[in-house]
Design a protein around this nucleic acid. Sequence first.
DNA 1: AAAAAAATACCTATAAAGCGGTAGGGCGAT
DNA 2: ATCGCCCTACCGCTTTATAGGTATTTTTTT
Lengths: 217, 217
Amino acid sequence: MNITVAIADDHAVVREGIKAVLQKTTAGIEVVAEAANGQQALDIARNSPADIYLLDISMPLLNGLEVAERLSRMSPQCRVIILSMHDDKSSVEKAFQSGARGYLVKENAAEEIVQAVREVYAGKFFLSPEVSRYIVQDFLGGRGQYVRKARFRDLTGKEKEVLQLVAEGFSSKEIAGNLNIALATVQVHRRNIMRKLDIHKQADLVRFALKEGIARL
Amino acid sequence: MNITVAIADDHAVVREGIKAVLQKTTAGIEVVAEAANGQQALDIARNSPADIYLLDISMPLLNGLEVAERLSRMSPQCRVIILSMHDDKSSVEKAFQSGARGYLVKENAAEEIVQAVREVYAGKFFLSPEVSRYIVQDFLGGRGQYVRKARFRDLTGKEKEVLQLVAEGFSSKEIAGNLNIALATVQVHRRNIMRKLDIHKQADLVRFALKEGIARL
DNA sequence: AAAAAAATACCTATAAAGCGGTAGGGCGAT
DNA sequence: ATCGCCCTACCGCTTTATAGGTATTTTTTT
């Protein structure tokens, strides 16, 4: 029986590329579904589940890490491989904290995808060579994950909404109107966001949101 | 005879995707070279030129727009199509100012690429539907380039410095200390920047600076 | 059911940002 | 050499952001 794969990436070209690579291999890998955003990916999981989910990190509506987290909660046995443009440590950490089983950097040779799908399907973990050093570092350095800074995943839903609007250039007053809550509440959310992230200026907040893919350039 | 195409993109998956799309069509389009960065793309042009160059905007060493500009200077008859993640107006304008003949947004249906290659090879221009409105707007507005909004190049040297520091999260006071000028001067620069750019909030200023590449994420 | 976390709301206070006008000195171009 | 632009600097004013405390209701987790 074939290994069924669902692809979620907002760029059609990338989806085509992955499909091309997976179908070039004679072996039993089949792309059974595609999603252009995180919400669609969740819909696929609910209605026509696949064995492996290839999720891009930056996607509209829900990013890949959030999708991974919800998938893990919905059905912990499901296998997620995160696709990313970047090989930064925090993304890698977040991916595995979100329940992903694999982390692929897009720059890589296409053949790696096939290998990753096979290994993750077999219950193993898979990392692009570029990022495996982070895992090794953490392993050598002991309790890496306990001392890490609070980040995006620690924000509540409302806080994420507020942060997105902040990054999109809305003032607290405008955000209050937009979300239909009081100005004071927005201010509290902003304060909590900044406390959690250890950020103290609007400019840094905007940069953080863009870096995390919460808002778009 | 086949139309020969060279692809430059730092993401192997994207290159695979484009190749897959172009080779799926029975007609005479052939991918004869690939580059993973702008420098390689120039090497290809020098040593084994192709009819059409598909260039991603964001690449290491030289970005797609810079490559386009040099290609145009080297051999003005060569045909460049720019591939981009974004459909923002400034990128589109810069692409055509750099001598490109086509502008494709990656989100788009893959079939558009084939059409773009054919049309550009035939001496026409090609734009993704998402971005053609900018051209139309400019056309309808008459002398579009004269009335278009002031942008990065209209800022003076000091204004660019200030903008960069704003986008990097420094307050006016910190910027004054950094540049060794009075706080009041920084405030004037900020005001002039915002007036020129028609931007009125710090968050939008940060986003603008990141979009223009003045500051880094 | 109880406990914890999140969302809501209000108050106060200081810092920073945004907007207005004004003005002198330097520097290049018409 | 007169004009325009840039850089510099100051004054005043209003709005927004940041930061602190407190408290009630709702949701989530245990």
